[in-house]
Protein backbone atom coordinates (compact mmCIF):
# COMPACT_ATOMS: atom_id res chain seq x y z
CA UNK A 1 0.00 0.00 0.00
CA UNK A 2 1.60 3.16 -1.09
CA UNK A 3 0.91 6.33 0.76
CA UNK A 4 -0.09 7.86 -2.58
CA UNK A 5 -2.99 5.42 -2.87
CA UNK A 6 -4.07 6.31 0.62
CA UNK A 7 -4.03 9.99 -0.31
CA UNK A 8 -6.19 9.28 -3.35
CA UNK A 9 -8.77 7.57 -1.18
CA UNK A 10 -8.72 10.49 1.23
CA UNK A 11 -9.23 13.01 -1.57
CA UNK A 12 -12.18 11.02 -2.91
CA UNK A 13 -13.73 10.87 0.53
CA UNK A 14 -13.19 14.58 1.06
CA UNK A 15 -14.97 15.40 -2.20
CA UNK A 16 -17.84 13.22 -1.06
CA UNK A 17 -17.95 14.86 2.34
CA UNK A 18 -17.98 18.37 0.96
CA UNK A 19 -20.59 17.60 -1.67
CA UNK A 20 -22.80 16.10 0.99
CA UNK A 21 -23.46 19.62 2.26
CA UNK A 22 -24.45 20.84 5.67
CA UNK A 23 -28.20 20.66 6.14
CA UNK A 24 -29.37 22.46 9.29
CA UNK A 25 -32.84 21.50 10.44
CA UNK A 26 -34.51 24.07 12.64
CA UNK A 27 -36.44 21.80 14.94
CA UNK A 28 -35.72 21.81 18.65
CA UNK A 29 -36.31 18.90 20.98
CA UNK A 30 -36.99 19.93 24.56
CA UNK A 31 -36.15 17.21 27.05
CA UNK A 32 -37.62 18.02 30.44
CA UNK A 33 -36.42 16.04 33.48
CA UNK A 34 -39.83 16.25 35.08
CA UNK A 35 -42.44 18.78 34.03
CA UNK A 36 -44.31 18.43 37.30
CA UNK A 37 -41.36 20.28 38.87
CA UNK A 38 -42.35 23.95 38.88
CA UNK A 39 -38.97 25.39 38.01
CA UNK A 40 -38.48 23.05 35.05
CA UNK A 41 -41.99 23.88 33.86
CA UNK A 42 -41.44 27.65 34.07
CA UNK A 43 -38.22 27.47 32.11
CA UNK A 44 -39.83 25.31 29.43
CA UNK A 45 -42.79 27.68 29.04
CA UNK A 46 -40.68 30.83 28.60
CA UNK A 47 -38.27 29.04 26.29
CA UNK A 48 -41.06 27.77 24.05
CA UNK A 49 -42.75 31.16 23.93
CA UNK A 50 -39.74 32.87 22.40
CA UNK A 51 -38.54 30.01 20.28
CA UNK A 52 -41.94 29.59 18.65
CA UNK A 53 -42.16 33.34 18.01
CA UNK A 54 -39.03 32.86 15.94
CA UNK A 55 -40.63 30.17 13.77
CA UNK A 56 -38.84 27.18 15.24
CA UNK A 57 -40.66 23.88 15.44
CA UNK A 58 -40.63 22.27 18.84
CA UNK A 59 -40.92 18.66 19.97
CA UNK A 60 -41.06 17.79 23.65
CA UNK A 61 -40.22 14.84 25.83
CA UNK A 62 -41.02 14.72 29.50
CA UNK A 63 -38.86 12.05 31.08
CA UNK A 64 -41.20 11.61 33.97
CA UNK A 65 -44.02 10.34 31.78
CA UNK A 66 -42.08 7.48 30.22
CA UNK A 67 -41.00 4.28 31.89
CA UNK A 68 -38.34 3.68 29.25
CA UNK A 69 -37.35 7.26 28.63
CA UNK A 70 -34.08 6.29 27.00
CA UNK A 71 -35.79 4.40 24.19
CA UNK A 72 -38.39 7.15 23.81
CA UNK A 73 -35.65 9.71 23.51
CA UNK A 74 -33.77 7.69 20.91
CA UNK A 75 -36.91 7.22 18.85
CA UNK A 76 -37.93 10.84 19.14
CA UNK A 77 -34.51 12.01 18.02
CA UNK A 78 -34.72 9.79 14.97
CA UNK A 79 -38.32 10.71 14.22
CA UNK A 80 -38.01 14.45 14.68
CA UNK A 81 -34.40 14.86 13.61
CA UNK A 82 -33.94 18.01 15.72
CA UNK A 83 -31.09 20.37 15.01
CA UNK A 84 -30.71 21.09 18.69
CA UNK A 85 -31.65 19.37 21.92
CA UNK A 86 -32.56 21.59 24.86
CA UNK A 87 -32.45 19.85 28.22
CA UNK A 88 -33.99 21.07 31.45
CA UNK A 89 -32.53 19.55 34.60
CA UNK A 90 -29.55 17.28 35.15
CA UNK A 91 -31.41 14.05 34.46
CA UNK A 92 -32.42 15.20 31.01
CA UNK A 93 -28.92 16.38 30.22
CA UNK A 94 -27.21 13.16 31.26
CA UNK A 95 -29.60 11.09 29.20
CA UNK A 96 -29.60 13.29 26.12
CA UNK A 97 -25.86 13.82 25.85
CA UNK A 98 -25.37 10.20 24.77
CA UNK A 99 -27.72 10.52 21.84
CA UNK A 100 -26.90 13.89 20.35
CA UNK A 101 -25.08 12.40 17.35
CA UNK A 102 -23.34 15.68 16.62
CA UNK A 103 -26.40 17.77 17.25
CA UNK A 104 -26.01 20.80 19.41
CA UNK A 105 -27.01 20.39 23.02
CA UNK A 106 -28.07 23.20 25.31
CA UNK A 107 -28.67 22.45 28.97
CA UNK A 108 -30.29 24.41 31.78
CA UNK A 109 -31.41 24.00 35.40
CA UNK A 110 -28.61 21.55 36.22
CA UNK A 111 -27.28 22.17 39.69
CA UNK A 112 -23.58 23.07 39.59
CA UNK A 113 -22.98 22.23 35.94
CA UNK A 114 -19.22 22.10 36.50
CA UNK A 115 -19.58 18.65 38.07
CA UNK A 116 -21.01 17.30 34.82
CA UNK A 117 -18.96 15.83 32.05
CA UNK A 118 -19.57 18.41 29.35
CA UNK A 119 -19.21 16.87 25.94
CA UNK A 120 -18.36 18.60 22.72
CA UNK A 121 -21.06 20.60 20.99
CA UNK A 122 -22.62 21.37 24.36
CA UNK A 123 -23.79 24.77 25.57
CA UNK A 124 -25.57 25.75 28.73
CA UNK A 125 -27.29 28.24 30.94
CA UNK A 126 -26.18 27.64 34.50
CA UNK A 127 -28.59 27.18 37.36
CA UNK A 128 -26.73 29.41 39.79
CA UNK A 129 -26.00 33.09 39.42
CA UNK A 130 -22.34 33.84 38.89
CA UNK A 131 -20.77 33.61 42.32
CA UNK A 132 -19.09 36.99 41.71
CA UNK A 133 -22.53 38.50 41.15
CA UNK A 134 -23.92 36.99 44.34
CA UNK A 135 -20.95 38.18 46.37
CA UNK A 136 -21.07 41.70 44.86
CA UNK A 137 -24.76 42.05 45.60
CA UNK A 138 -24.38 40.68 49.11
CA UNK A 139 -21.63 43.17 49.83
CA UNK A 140 -23.71 46.02 48.35
CA UNK A 141 -26.78 45.23 50.45
CA UNK A 142 -25.05 44.23 53.68
CA UNK A 143 -21.75 46.16 53.60
CA UNK A 144 -20.65 45.31 57.13
CA UNK A 145 -20.61 41.52 56.70
CA UNK A 146 -17.05 40.20 56.46
CA UNK A 147 -17.30 36.50 57.28
CA UNK A 148 -19.91 34.23 55.78
CA UNK A 149 -20.37 30.49 56.14
CA UNK A 150 -22.00 27.77 54.13
CA UNK A 151 -22.64 24.04 54.15
CA UNK A 152 -22.33 22.01 50.98
CA UNK A 153 -21.83 18.49 49.71
CA UNK A 154 -18.74 17.60 47.79
CA UNK A 155 -20.74 15.52 45.36
CA UNK A 156 -22.95 18.32 44.11
CA UNK A 157 -21.37 21.67 44.89
CA UNK A 158 -17.62 21.42 45.22
CA UNK A 159 -16.79 23.43 42.10
CA UNK A 160 -19.38 26.09 42.85
CA UNK A 161 -18.13 26.53 46.41
CA UNK A 162 -14.58 26.87 45.17
CA UNK A 163 -15.59 29.72 42.88
CA UNK A 164 -17.53 31.39 45.71
CA UNK A 165 -14.44 31.29 47.93
CA UNK A 166 -12.27 32.76 45.21
CA UNK A 167 -14.68 35.56 44.33
CA UNK A 168 -15.33 36.39 47.97
CA UNK A 169 -11.66 36.67 48.74
CA UNK A 170 -11.18 39.19 45.93
CA UNK A 171 -13.64 41.57 47.63
CA UNK A 172 -12.32 40.96 51.11
CA UNK A 173 -14.99 38.55 52.36
CA UNK A 174 -13.91 35.41 54.14
CA UNK A 175 -15.96 32.27 53.43
CA UNK A 176 -15.94 29.46 55.98
CA UNK A 177 -17.25 26.20 54.53
CA UNK A 178 -18.09 22.76 55.81
CA UNK A 179 -18.75 19.78 53.58
CA UNK A 180 -21.33 17.19 54.58
CA UNK A 181 -22.21 13.84 53.04
CA UNK A 182 -25.76 13.44 54.25
CA UNK A 183 -28.49 15.54 55.78
CA UNK A 184 -28.03 13.92 59.21
CA UNK A 185 -24.77 15.83 59.60
CA UNK A 186 -26.42 19.25 59.28
CA UNK A 187 -27.04 19.85 63.01
CA UNK A 188 -23.48 19.18 64.10
CA UNK A 189 -22.05 20.99 61.12
CA UNK A 190 -24.10 24.11 61.89
CA UNK A 191 -23.11 24.04 65.55
CA UNK A 192 -19.49 24.09 64.52
CA UNK A 193 -19.90 26.68 61.80
CA UNK A 194 -22.31 29.32 63.09
CA UNK A 195 -20.13 30.69 65.95
CA UNK A 196 -17.37 31.46 63.45
CA UNK A 197 -19.45 33.49 60.99
CA UNK A 198 -21.54 36.63 60.69
CA UNK A 199 -24.00 35.34 58.08
CA UNK A 200 -25.05 31.91 56.86
CA UNK A 201 -25.49 31.38 53.12
CA UNK A 202 -27.85 28.71 51.81
CA UNK A 203 -26.71 27.46 48.41
CA UNK A 204 -28.74 25.13 46.18
CA UNK A 205 -27.17 21.93 47.41
CA UNK A 206 -29.49 18.90 47.20
CA UNK A 207 -27.79 17.09 50.06
CA UNK A 208 -27.94 20.03 52.49
CA UNK A 209 -31.53 20.76 51.48
CA UNK A 210 -32.83 17.21 51.53
CA UNK A 211 -36.17 17.89 53.15
CA UNK A 212 -38.20 20.34 55.20
CA UNK A 213 -36.54 19.13 58.39
CA UNK A 214 -33.13 20.19 57.09
CA UNK A 215 -34.49 23.62 56.23
CA UNK A 216 -36.07 23.88 59.66
CA UNK A 217 -32.82 22.89 61.39
CA UNK A 218 -30.89 25.54 59.50
CA UNK A 219 -33.27 28.34 60.43
CA UNK A 220 -33.71 27.24 64.03
CA UNK A 221 -29.96 27.06 64.61
CA UNK A 222 -29.40 30.41 62.87
CA UNK A 223 -32.14 32.03 64.93
CA UNK A 224 -30.78 30.64 68.21
CA UNK A 225 -27.38 32.06 67.45
CA UNK A 226 -28.84 35.29 66.00
CA UNK A 227 -27.14 34.83 62.67
CA UNK A 228 -28.80 36.18 59.54
CA UNK A 229 -29.42 33.80 56.66
CA UNK A 230 -28.82 34.71 53.05
CA UNK A 231 -30.41 32.35 50.50
CA UNK A 232 -30.23 31.49 46.83
CA UNK A 233 -34.02 31.46 46.50
CA UNK A 234 -36.82 33.64 47.84
CA UNK A 235 -38.69 30.56 49.07
CA UNK A 236 -36.48 30.78 52.17
CA UNK A 237 -37.62 34.32 52.99
CA UNK A 238 -40.78 33.01 54.57
CA UNK A 239 -38.64 30.62 56.65
CA UNK A 240 -36.65 33.56 58.02
CA UNK A 241 -33.92 34.41 55.52
CA UNK A 242 -33.04 38.11 55.61
CA UNK A 243 -32.10 38.39 51.97
CA UNK A 244 -32.48 36.18 48.91
CA UNK A 245 -30.88 36.67 45.55
CA UNK A 246 -32.27 34.06 43.23
CA UNK A 247 -31.77 33.22 39.60
CA UNK A 248 -34.97 34.09 37.78
CA UNK A 249 -36.42 30.96 36.13
CA UNK A 250 -38.38 32.91 33.52
CA UNK A 251 -35.20 34.66 32.46
CA UNK A 252 -33.35 31.33 32.25
CA UNK A 253 -35.98 30.16 29.75
CA UNK A 254 -35.79 33.38 27.73
CA UNK A 255 -32.03 33.46 27.91
CA UNK A 256 -31.83 29.88 26.63
CA UNK A 257 -34.01 30.87 23.70
CA UNK A 258 -31.79 33.88 22.90
CA UNK A 259 -28.84 31.54 23.14
CA UNK A 260 -30.36 29.27 20.50
CA UNK A 261 -30.99 32.20 18.16
CA UNK A 262 -27.41 33.34 18.53
CA UNK A 263 -26.07 29.80 18.09
CA UNK A 264 -27.84 29.57 14.78
CA UNK A 265 -26.10 32.72 13.72
CA UNK A 266 -22.79 31.14 14.77
CA UNK A 267 -22.35 33.90 17.31
CA UNK A 268 -21.68 31.64 20.27
CA UNK A 269 -18.39 29.90 20.75
CA UNK A 270 -18.65 26.19 21.41
CA UNK A 271 -18.85 25.07 24.98
CA UNK A 272 -20.16 28.40 26.26
CA UNK A 273 -22.05 28.11 29.52
CA UNK A 274 -23.71 31.34 30.62
CA UNK A 275 -24.73 32.34 34.11
CA UNK A 276 -28.39 33.27 34.52
CA UNK A 277 -28.94 36.86 33.45
CA UNK A 278 -31.92 37.63 35.67
CA UNK A 279 -32.07 37.86 39.42
CA UNK A 280 -34.86 38.38 41.90
CA UNK A 281 -33.84 40.09 45.11
CA UNK A 282 -36.04 39.80 48.15
CA UNK A 283 -35.53 41.51 51.45
CA UNK A 284 -37.13 40.40 54.67
CA UNK A 285 -37.40 43.74 56.45
CA UNK A 286 -38.87 42.11 59.51
CA UNK A 287 -35.77 39.95 60.07
CA UNK A 288 -33.50 42.82 59.05
CA UNK A 289 -34.98 45.05 61.76
CA UNK A 290 -35.04 42.29 64.36
CA UNK A 291 -31.35 41.53 63.86
CA UNK A 292 -30.50 45.25 63.55
CA UNK A 293 -28.39 44.62 60.53
CA UNK A 294 -26.66 47.44 58.72
CA UNK A 295 -28.50 47.61 55.39
CA UNK A 296 -27.49 49.98 52.59
CA UNK A 297 -30.57 52.19 52.15
CA UNK A 298 -29.46 53.32 48.69
CA UNK A 299 -29.86 49.73 47.60
CA UNK A 300 -33.56 49.64 48.40
CA UNK A 301 -34.66 50.40 44.84
CA UNK A 302 -32.71 47.36 43.58
CA UNK A 303 -34.92 45.09 45.63
CA UNK A 304 -37.71 43.28 43.83
CA UNK A 305 -39.66 42.34 46.91
CA UNK A 306 -39.72 43.68 50.39
CA UNK A 307 -41.42 41.50 52.94
CA UNK A 308 -42.53 43.05 56.19
CA UNK A 309 -43.57 41.66 59.57
CA UNK A 310 -47.29 41.95 58.98
CA UNK A 311 -48.90 38.61 58.33
Amino acid sequence: MKIRNFCKVLILLTVFWISAGFAQPSKILIVNSDNSVYRYQTIATEFKKIIQQNAYQVAELNLNSHADAETELKQLIQQENPGLIYTIGTKAYLLARDYTHNRKLLFSAAINWRRLDIAEGTYGVANELASAQEISLLRYFLPSIKTIGLLYSDKFSREYVESIKKDALSVGINVVTKAINEDKEIGDALNGLLPKIELFWIISDPVVLSNKESVKTIFQSAQQQKKPVYAYSDVYIEQGAVLAVSADSDTIGRQSASFVLMMDKDKVSEGTVQSPAGSTITLNKCVLDALRLNFNKDALDSINKVVGCEK
Binding site: R39, Y40, A109, I111, D205, P206, K212, S233
Partner: peptide, 9 residues
Protein backbone atom coordinates in the same frame (compact mmCIF):
# COMPACT_ATOMS: atom_id res chain seq x y z
CA UNK B 1 -41.66 23.08 44.91
CA UNK B 2 -38.07 24.08 45.49
CA UNK B 3 -37.35 20.96 47.56
CA UNK B 4 -39.00 18.88 44.84
CA UNK B 5 -36.68 20.48 42.33
CA UNK B 6 -33.65 19.72 44.50
CA UNK B 7 -34.88 16.16 44.97
CA UNK B 8 -35.17 15.78 41.20
CA UNK B 9 -31.60 17.00 40.84
Amino acid sequence: KELAYLAAE
